[in-house]
Design a protein around this nucleic acid. Structure first.
Lengths: 303, 303
DNA sequence: ATCTAAGTTTGTCCTGGACAAAGCGGAGGG
DNA sequence: CCCTCCGCTTTGTCCAGGACAAACTTAGAT
């Protein structure tokens, strides 16, 4: 019975890649260059990572997502990392307009209350204001709390699920069929965050636009063929903060060349904010209300 | 202007891994052992895969998912592959009870019709029969059509999105709060198909069960902590046909040991079907109606 | 202040070897 | 006849350590 009492005390390199999002090659090269992580080895010489090191790697990953460079943080002690994290949070601290009461409901045992509160806010504010003023700030607050370690993986998952339930229900109820413009929404293959797409759709549909979402992770060539075959006016892409800006820009420019000039490209999300000047031919949408502005502009040009 | 007219004519190894789901290490070892694929090399000696080879790899991947072994198919010609595919489809051909008219709507330009048809079927049949008699067969038919090459990536994505919209809206409208049993639904970290979870939830919620879905890809340790912290009676896991059966069994047994015996584990999906005897302590749910049977049984035991 | 050029950091890819887990097939027992 | 056990083959993953281009930083020039 070799299974008894095994609460996954160690992880192999594939599990660490999965849990931290850091590639196997990168983990090995960090070990070589910075002396961290320092996994034990099994009888066959394969790496076995201790849970504390995995936690530390997750923390490092978050700091990298916020723009730090590996040389300064991969070799750092837990104390130094914690200090950097505080610093990092301080800069973005001005978490605007998110009333904390909803954040408190992002707990496993309060999921039902969260769902009710979201639905209530939706009814009170209407879909667009609900998305822009409630969901978006709440999502930012959850991301920050997650970084701070106050929210777990399951709670973050749960939050995403609940918001999806509410938004998809509301979007489905609108069902504008023949509207213009026709907007195709999706993400690049490496991006799996779906909330940005749903929020954009929730802003556009009430304005009478005809949105078709492909969900996440669509290969570039398929985006092109779908946009052409479906007769779309606009392709909308969403990029979370974890998406490498350089990759976003390269992909967007490549897509711009693949698509006919009659199809507009809109890009939104933290990874492309303030990158308008490096993206000729692409409309960078700074925030959710920017989506509405872009829509008005499009309609003015096509009337 | 080195970007002109580049429709991604070749893919590097990372792109192929992303597009086919075959690991880089595996691609290299296939090349070494079976002489396929045979990518060109760039100036730096790095592999450049031609689009036709990527297509062939996708086909190989599908055949592997259906139980073929690599030795017989990785080296095979395109003709032989096509023949095997036909064979493969013939065995599962008895596609039961799926009226083809819905399948025809899984086209980009007919997305609005698909959404309407789904909602109409939902209204007519009620949530549970809609899921068991319409969505499940349709999902199987789409999977088959995708394998046959009659459906593209974007269309498969679109289908998933539309079904999610309808199911999430319907589930949200039921919102049973205090019901029993309390069921936690999710998948293991390598499994990203969400429809199985949603269908299970759609079967359970109308029966008054209190379902909480964490979506896909929850680490084992987090499933445990969530189940314990949330006071759940049942943990439900879903496994698509592409999930390695061995891995599913190992994970389920490990989870069984981590969870208190008061928490039941239910497992459903193609990867665990007919594996009940290898899964002591886990309830294998064969199909969607099996979910209802399991629920009745649970209630009989806890009354 | 914005741009360019040289220098440094960093992730990804390579080869070729090794091995354990998964699957297959035959032998033996209920 | 069905099931289980056991040896053999297949197959995916891991390793080391080297290489290099892309990304970033810094310094200098316009």
């Amino acid at each position: 019975m070799n299974d008894i009492a095994r609460f996954e005390p160690v992880h192999n390199i594939a599990a660490v890649e999965r849990d931290t999002g850091i590639a196997k090659d990168t983990l090995r090269v960090w070990e070589r260059r910075y002396g961290f992580p320092t996994p034990a080895r099994d009888a066959n010489g394969e790496r076995l990572y201790a849970p504390e090191q995995v936690d530390k790697l997750r923390l490092i990953r978050r700091l990298l997502d916020h723009g730090r460079r590996p040389a300064r943080i991969v070799g750092a002690s837990a104390d130094e990392l914690a200090r950097m994290l505080d610093e990092c949070l301080a800069t973005s601290a001005a978490a605007p307009g998110c009333d904390g009461s909803l954040l408190e409901l992002v707990r496993l045992h309060r999921s039902v209350e969260l769902a009710q509160a979201l639905r209530h806010a939706l009814m009170k504010q209407g879909l667009q204001r609900f998305v822009a003023d409630t969901v978006a700030p709440l999502a930012a607050a959850v991301g920050e709390a997650w970084m701070r370690g106050e929210v777990d993986v399951p709670e973050e998952h749960l939050f995403t699920e609940q918001v999806q339930n509410v938004l998809r229900g509301a979007i489905g109820a609108q069902a504008a069929s023949g509207g213009r413009p026709r907007v195709l929404l999706t993400t690049f293959p490496e991006e799996e965050h779906v909330l940005g797409l749903l929020m954009a759709e929730a802003m556009l549909v009430p304005e009478g636009a005809c949105c078709v979402s492909l969900g996440t992770r669509t290969p570039l060539a398929d985006i092109r063929s779908a946009a052409v075959a479906g007769g779309f006016d606009i392709v909308g892409l969403s990029f979370s903060i974890a998406y490498p800006a350089r990759q976003a820009i390269e992909g967007l420019l490549a897509l711009r060349e693949m698509l006919p000039t009659t199809v507009d490209i809109w890009a939104g999300g933290a990874a492309v904010r303030d990158k308008q000047k490096r993206l000729p031919g692409v409309r960078v949408v700074g925030d959710l209300d920017g989506t509405l502005a872009a829509l008005q502009q499009w309609r003015a040009q096509h009337s």
